[in-house]
Amino acid sequence: MPDKRERHLLISGFGGQGIVLAGDILGKAATLYDHKHATMTQNYGPEARGGACSSQVIISGEEVLFPCVEEPEILVCMSQEAYTKNIKSLRPDGTFIWDTDLVHTRKTDMHFKTFHIPATRMAEELGNKMMANIVMLGFLSAIEPVVHAEAIRKAVMDSVPASTKDNNIRAFNTGREYGTSITKGLVKPEPGKHQD
């Protein structure tokens, strides 16, 4: 019996962070390796770099007809602007994931299931902050297993330049391990930065 429920995700940040690539990888993993249906659409401004950017991913056991994510159940924010703009759309029982260093959250938004990871910093430590999106995908795979981790790994391998495959897989694993240790309560996440 296929899972008919549509899972709605919104990944958001700014142009140049690989937001659309992250959505693409997730959709590809679901479609090609988890044998589900997926759509990925993107919203972007006229700027190639720095403008607000988001990718909307819907994953389902059945054909997806309406490809818009209006009320995501999982929201990933990798910039302050993305957070301010999108947090209102998150479902009350939704999961809110953000980059610790890039988003200053409000305490009033902490009623969601909240998880954060210094993805950009971790990617920098791994040698390239461009991989923050992949670290974030690893983290996401541990927090909300909408797509199997192995499927995402394969999709990452398909999607990044050959010379960076090893590094990207390391980035994915780093994010995933961090996520797993948090969900298992092995480590306490470092405090997020809140605005009052």
Partner: peptide
């Protein structure tokens, strides 16, 4: 635009 930019199987 949506069909053009949408990724799908």
């Amino acid at each position: 635009e949506v069909v053009g930019h949408m990724n799908e199987r």
